[in-house]
Structures are given as C-alpha cells and as structure tokens.
C-alpha cells in the first residue's frame, strides 16, 4: 500500500457548518456539565478543555516527517504525529505530576519544560543522526530562507526531495510544541486530580488518605486517554507530515482548536461523570 503516494485530499478548506455544529456541541456539553456538577465539575471541565486545546495547538509546531523522513526525503523527525505528540506530552505529564503539590502554575510550567526538553533532545539527536549518520545537511523544502536565522535553504536541498534534516525553525517549533503539549497534558491531569481528591472520599465512602492511589491513577489514565484522542485528531488534521510553524499546513490550526475543544469537552465530561453520578 502506498500511503505516501495517495494522501487524502482533505486539504486546508474549512467547513463552516461543521465548525458551527462543533461549537454548539461544546456549549451543550458545558450546559450538561453545569447541570450535573455546577461548581467543581464545571471548573474542572473548563481546565480540561484548555489543556486539550493546548495539546491540539501545540502538536502543529512539532516537525513530523513520517516514513519519507526516515529515508532522508522530507524534513522532520521520522515518525508519526501521534507518536511524537504522545511522547512529548507524556514526558511533560510525568514531569508535571511530580510537581503537582507545588500548585497549578509551577506544575504546569514544569510539565511544559518536561515536554519541551524531551522534544529538544529528540530534535538534537535526530539532527545528529541525519548529519553524522546519513551525511545529509538540514534543509527546508517549504521556504527559501529560514524564517528565524535567514539562512538560505535552496542550495542544500537535494533534487527530488522535499528537503531533509531539521532546519533551525523546525527545531524551535518542536521545542515550542513540546512545551505547549506538555503543559496541556499537565493541566488536564491536575484538574482531574483535584476534582477526584475532593469528591472520591464521599463517593466511595473511604477516608481521603485511602483514595489517593485511586485518584492519581484514574486522573492519570483519563489524562493519557484525552491526550491520545487530541493527538490523533491533530494528526488527522495535519494528514501526515508537517515541517513546523513555517509550513503552509500550519494554517489549518483553527480546525484543530474546535475539534480538540469538542473532543476534550466530551471526554472530560465523561471523566467528571464518574464522581458526579
């Protein structure tokens, strides 16, 4: 099967009707959540939506090369969007979970730094392998000059390829994307954790100290589930490969914002129902 040759013809077009339906669905879910759990539940859901949108938006920055990149025929890291976003986000989520007791701001930034650090290390080692292992320079195929350094790209691009390696702008994009995705994953985890820690003792009829393992594991699992849903939906939006923030496909982000918001609201609402009913 040549998935490379026959990409879906999704294109960058927006579908205004579907976007409107998405916003209406979002409002309906928020109203349902307000009906079921007006105080803490609604606050947690808003936090989950913000986290989900951060993941969806951040994933667009990550340079994803897919199979062509593994052969040095396209720029980016040689794997899929879902894998990279999950890697960066989960690294951030674990980082943020360590700092959960330090408060929302410190934990979120720690999560972001964890995700950004993971992407920075990945991008550096990828370029290491490209330059010293495969012997190819970093060159973008989508722009003539690097938007940040101003370096000319055309001379370094091999004929018949879409570029190769990780140009500087892709590297920076990867770090920004990892930061946003890690922070988003941490926000989701923290919101669900504080909700569960507050409500699970009453729901299960146990002392607060005993429910902590349940609260941590359930919040963590919901965060991972939400993370993967958002990452894959963003992958569907990008349809394959993206070079970073300078890629024309980056302009598709408004669709991903709506999609991530609706999907996070839906999954977050289900996660809140577990303590609300």
């Amino acid at each position: 099967m040549s998935a490379v040759a026959a990409k879906p013809q999704a294109g960058g077009a927006m579908n205004p009707t579907a976007m409107a339906v998405g916003v209406v669905m979002l409002l309906i879910i928020l109203a349902l959540c307000w009906y079921v759990s007006p105080g803490a539940g609604l606050m947690a859901l808003v936090g989950v939506i913000i986290g989900g949108v951060l993941i969806g938006f951040g994933t667009h920055f990550v340079p994803v090369g897919g199979a062509p990149a593994a052969m040095g025929q396209a720029p980016g890291i040689a794997t899929g969007v879902a894998m990279l976003a999950a890697g960066a986000g989960l690294a951030g989520l674990f980082g943020g979970a360590w700092a959960a007791e330090q408060g929302l701001v410190v934990a979120t930034i720690t999560g972001g730094v964890g995700g950004g650090l993971m992407m920075a290390i990945t991008c550096m080692m990828v370029n290491f392998v490209y330059v010293f292992g495969m012997g190819i320079p970093a060159a973008s195929g989508k722009v003539l000059y690097d938007p940040i350094t101003g370096d000319s790209q055309k001379e370094f691009k091999s004929q018949g390829t879409e570029g190769h390696g990780l140009p500087f702008v892709s590297f920076v994009g990867g770090v920004i994307g990892g930061f946003l995705a890690g922070a988003g994953g941490t926000i989701i985890y923290l919101q669900l954790l504080s909700l569960y820690e507050a409500t699970l003792p009453a729901v299960m009829g146990l002392p607060p100290a005993q429910v902590i393992p349940i609260a941590v594991a359930a919040a963590g699992m919901f965060a991972v589930g939400l993370f993967l849903v958002n990452a894959v939906l963003t992958a569907y939006n990008i349809t394959g490969t993206i070079e970073g923030p300078h890629d024309p496909k980056f302009k598709r982000w408004p669709r991903a914002i709506v999609a991530s918001a609706v999907a996070s609201a839906l999954c977050g609402f289900v996660a809140i129902l577990i303590v609300a009913i």
């Binding site: 040549s2 026959a6 969007v81 939400l226």
Partner: peptide, 15 residues
C-alpha cells in the same frame, strides 16, 4: 490511506 500511520488508529481506539 489516512496518512497518519496505522498505530494512531490503535491509540485513538484505546484513548
């Protein structure tokens, strides 16, 4: 040919 790789389908299924 959804263009995102087969593993992403397994991830959204379990997510």
């Amino acid at each position: 040919g959804i263009g995102t790789g087969v593993p992403s389908a397994g991830m959204i299924a379990f997510g």
